[in-house]
Write a protein that binds this DNA or RNA. Structure first.
Length: 106
DNA sequence: AACCTGACTTCGG
DNA sequence: TCCGAAGCCAGGT
């Protein structure tokens, strides 16, 4: 049985460990569609509420939050900092230190 | 069924 | 190194 891209994304995001982050591209890749990073963001946007996902642990490939100020950026940043993730002066996260790389798909 | 949109990524200038 | 344009996938209208 093959899960839908949507289900894969939800599943993977739920597995992101606390204190770690993932990029849209990484999630898309693990979900089976390396080029569907945009779709990942879309899924988070539409399902973060009902699925209770740690959407804030997902940032873009630059380690930055893609949201615009006022659209959730501050909230996300605060949540991440609360988990021990540090931001640089320009508001980016050091992917080498916080990127989720402990991948384990069932 | 066709077109539009987006919390992305990547390549070229 | 920075900015703009194109490519990509899936869901919504």
């Amino acid at each position: 049985m093959e899960k839908t891209f949507y289900q894969q994304v939800i599943y993977l995001i739920k597995k992101i460990p606390k204190g770690k982050i993932a990029t849209y591209g990484l999630i898309a890749r693990l979900a089976g569609s390396p080029r569907a990073a945009r779709q990942v963001s879309y899924i988070l946007h539409s399902s973060s509420g009902k699925e209770k996902l740690p959407w804030f642990r997902v940032v873009n490939s630059q380690g930055k939050i893609s949201l615009r100020s006022g659209a959730g950026l501050e909230t996300q940043k605060k949540l991440l900092e609360d988990e021990g993730i540090e931001f640089r002066e320009d508001g980016s996260i050091d992917l080498k230190l916080f990127l989720w790389k402990n991948i384990n798909i069932e």
